[in-house]
Design a protein around this nucleic acid. Sequence first.
DNA 1: TTGCTTACTTAACGCCGTTAACTCACGCAT
DNA 2: ATGCGTGAGTTAACGGCGTTAAGTAAGCAA
Lengths: 208, 208
Amino acid sequence: MAVRSNNAQNGDLRRLILDTARHLLVQDGYSNLSMRKIASEIDYSATSIYLYFDNKDVLLHALIDEGMKQLFEALSNIAEQHEDAPLERLEALCGAFISFGLSNPEYYEIMFQLRPERMERYPPEKYREARRNLDFFRSALDEGASQDVFDVDDPRVSASAIWASLHGTVSLLLAERVDVRIDRDDFIQAAIRQTLRSYTRSATARHP
Amino acid sequence: MAVRSNNAQNGDLRRLILDTARHLLVQDGYSNLSMRKIASEIDYSATSIYLYFDNKDVLLHALIDEGMKQLFEALSNIAEQHEDAPLERLEALCGAFISFGLSNPEYYEIMFQLRPERMERYPPEKYREARRNLDFFRSALDEGASQDVFDVDDPRVSASAIWASLHGTVSLLLAERVDVRIDRDDFIQAAIRQTLRSYTRSATARHP
DNA sequence: TTGCTTACTTAACGCCGTTAACTCACGCAT
DNA sequence: ATGCGTGAGTTAACGGCGTTAAGTAAGCAA
């Protein structure tokens, strides 16, 4: 209870739970994150958490949301650094996505790697927000296409395909599934170059 | 115990466990697969399983192995159907990989989506075997490069990058994370075309 | 017959998410 | 001042999990 007085005055136990959950997630990983641990970390009973979150999934969704916002910030920063150079922007966005995943593996796991069967369906409003991150890629493709830098059929589909490629790259790296004899940065560069090369209209153009 | 007499004579309880595990995995998914359920399914005590498998991870590895062999079969079949057409072969391999993932989601999950922290490190011999699957892609690139069909720097790296792209595609589809407004097959085709286009040396060649 | 081995079971430990029932201090109306 | 409702938090319990330690019973060898 002495401990408890550390807490911000009162009423925001919810906030405290969320902060602690984030902290434990990053420290111990998703698979070691439990309601009981979160509770004991802040000297409350496990059931207290249920006063503020319906269940573990809901708590998790709140964390996912934080992660999506962080990713949005990262991509947003990158995007405005290359405002009128779609190719460079797309390349930088790819790098930023991968780097976000590699620097925040625990967030990445809950954001993109949890199968839906183990999780309540992602609520639609949040889903929409999560998709904003994809829009950075779509816009870059769109603008690039109109400037004749890119050769794109359907930017929405292509953006998703790019995302898939980046997601695979991050996933394999996080799962340590890439051949150890392959240099990590070489692999990342190859993945990005592979992605870009598919859409860049070469100087000796494809369309006559 | 009446039930028990159904079993193959004796001694191959190990086999029975494995078959039951596979069955339950496919039926209920990885997240619902438990030692206790496997045991109760075959009317043995949960601890019996430990007479044949050191722990759940080891049992899982045995299942992963089965999956890897299945995938190998699938890719192998495809590869020999396009023996001397590296481009068509690569395209077919991509399609086969994705189709394997989508038709065997539970296998796919344990084979490629489990994070290593929740699993004992994949034993090196099995790791090597798993990598044989990647060799189909590497060979296609290799042969394609020597026939001047592909423009490849390092086939080992490129094969991994292709794999990443395919893995991302399957993962997003299985996790139902692709924009619902995008047609599933369009997405798959886009992903494959994106991958291929990065390596195909266009008729109006890139290198002068 | 005794004793060893093999194949399996029972009981238990310490985790987990979650529910139901409770306590108890505070603020308010009487 | 007294009683009461309410909100915030608790304890106890349920049924699940992986795993270990100890026990048991049948079969076989000497």
